[in-house]
Design a protein around this nucleic acid. Structure first.
Lengths: 248, 248
DNA sequence: CGTAAGCTTGACAATGGTCAAAGCCGGTGG
DNA sequence: CCACCGGCTTTGACCATTGTCAAGCTTACG
């Protein structure tokens, strides 16, 4: 299982850029340590400034807190996602990272990555793309929060998560593990937990999707997708059409 | 004035990273062409896939349109800001770019930039930082739209714009050129133009800021800043404290 | 079993949206 | 030089989506 940790990261990079065999192997041989995040535990996004952090298992959330104590989740990270790529050269605002359910992170020392990058423009491009994808997701998410109504926001999030999980072999496209509390969805979608509850009920009543504790299941993908105006191009996976690998 | 175009870009990079004299000069000697954007004209963000686009004059907005025709502005770009840095290696969703008022863009062929980057890790880092800053702004903006009330959203935007303009010598920190129509603010803040109007009035009544056509003026910076919960760290300018250069 | 965390629901309040009319202002043509 | 026009702003009245508060309920787990 140890090897699989970095494997998922490599797989994620490959899903968005060409990487030579050699580069992949070099990545997989990188030394790393593991950091477990128990449910609800929070760390600063710059707690480990000298390491790249990648989600190994579970889901992590990056969030900010406003002056009035409200919380906004700005990114969810699924296995394989690097979560502080762009913090490398910046010393701007520090965010908080929380485990949604139980999660674990791989920590890879920056110098070892720098060494690979120095002579490998292909890898640099892959990392750049990876950061670009996160940005693209942010833009889509801003649009969703700013301009779509509550029910669509949740539908959109459902769609995005299942596609991202499918891309790393953690969903079959119909069901997925669901570590989120309704409060997480609320903080991500810019609404209250109470309203999330109402809207989830509506999605269920319409037959779009069912979110029980622990598992989410899409009822009618095509109708949900259309309803939520979900189009996965912004995930940058267009070239990656996985032959479904199941593992809920 | 021609030279000044790239000059502002260099200045922007310098405001967030160390660059050697030599690198700056190399950047300033890059060949480029100009693209004028008349008020309200829209182009695809990938219209010039082989060029880096940088704002030379005026303000540009990047936006998406939802299925129901609503528009969400995801970024404003002020002079010196690169607007398609991250599109370099990605072929994900294409956004629209619009001139807010009259604007002009500098187009620099990617190959000439690649050539500089190939041997210049310092420049690569500077560009990376530049992209990171845009991401940081997106996160803050998502938080604002998701979790702050309408009046604060506008206040926050006012604060951000004046700080960014000041950083490139286009404001004294009190007044700034204001090419925005209320609809722009609405589309950026996730609200309607009518409500923008009401909230601007409120900001004026409280003495925080006045937005007349063409000019915005901060009435009480400290109170506005506090009210809007604005903290400029997310702009990544913390090391750059300009000795005010005026030019509204 | 009993407790706590989180989910569900209902009643009510409020922020922000919708619609519609009137005002303002700069530009253009007679 | 004036009148008209179009685009934008301003305002009011009313509506609706979403938030708030509060209570009861379910479920996991010691």
């Amino acid at each position: 299982m140890d090897i699989a940790h970095l494997d998922r990261f490599v797989r994620r990079l490959q899903s968005r850029a060409e990487l030579q065999e050699q580069t992949c192997h070099a990545l997989q041989r990188l030394k790393f340590s593991l950091l477990g995040l128990r449910r609800g535990v929070t760390i600063g996004s710059r707690l480990h400034p000298n390491h790249l952090m990648v989600v190994a298992d579970g889901v992590a959330a990056r969030f900010k807190t406003t002056g009035t104590g409200a919380r906004q989740i700005v990114s969810f990270y699924v296995p394989g996602d690097p979560l502080n790529l762009q913090d490398r050269f910046v010393d701007d605002a520090e965010d908080q990272i929380e485990g949604v359910g139980v999660a674990s992170l791989v920590l890879v020392p920056w110098p070892s990555i720098d060494r690979l990058c120095a002579t490998n423009p292909e890898l640099r491009a892959a990392l750049w793309r990876s950061a670009s994808t996160e940005m693209s997701i942010l833009r889509e998410w801003l649009t969703t929060v700013g301009r779509r109504e509550a029910e669509k926001r949740l539908g959109h999030l459902l769609c995005e998560l299942i596609v991202r999980l499918k891309a790393v072999g953690l969903s079959d496209g119909t069901r997925m593990a669901w570590p989120f509390r309704q409060e997480h969805l609320a903080d991500a979608a810019g609404m209250t937990a109470v309203h999330v509850n109402r809207m989830l009920r509506r999605l269920r009543e319409r037959g779009f999707a069912t979110v029980r504790s622990g598992i989410a299941e899409i009822g009618d993908w095509d109708r949900l997708r259309e309803f939520a105006e979900f189009d996965d191009v912004y995930l940058g996976l267009s070239t990656f059409r996985p032959t479904a690998t199941i593992a809920v």
